[in-house]
């Protein structure tokens, strides 16, 4: 499949099977097949990956903010193998659902330390 990475893949919203928002395609990881041809092996998503891609002072700031809101020492980007991608249209649609993917560390941190402590956090407003 031919695809312009910059125009059609990078920075696009990733959506799971049920329409939940997973993240943006903040970066991609390449692999090389047996014939030496490079291919997109995985999508990387997370503020850390974005910060590293932007680079410079702003990029470092993004990484630092993400690091502050995680349990682990350094936040690693979420890696989504490309075989989980069902199709790419106005968003990148996965065949997996959000629960099967590793959760975002920042989301988990804020959930545990802030949002879950407020009554009514598990009730959707609709």
């Amino acid at each position: 499949m031919r695809m312009q990475l910059g125009r059609q893949l990078l920075d696009r919203q990733i959506v799971d099977r049920d329409g939940r928002l997973v993240g943006k395609v903040d970066d991609v990881e390449f692999g090389v097949d047996a014939d030496g041809v490079p291919y997109v092996a995985a999508l990387l998503t997370g503020q850390g990956a974005l910060g590293q891609r932007i680079g410079g002072r702003i990029g470092r700031l993004l990484v630092a903010v993400a690091d502050r809101f995680t349990e682990e020492r350094a936040v690693t980007p979420l890696r989504i193998p490309y075989r989980l991608v069902e199709r790419v249209d106005s968003a990148v649609r996965l065949r997996a659902c959000l629960g099967d993917l590793p959760a975002s560390p920042v989301e988990q941190w804020l959930r545990r330390h802030l949002i879950d402590r407020i009554p009514g956090a598990d009730r959707a407003g609709g």
Partner: peptide, 11 residues
């Protein structure tokens, strides 16, 4: 690209 909106629960 975070999950947003009032159609899901805050958590």
């Amino acid at each position: 690209g975070w999950q947003w909106g009032k159609w899901v629960s805050p958590r």
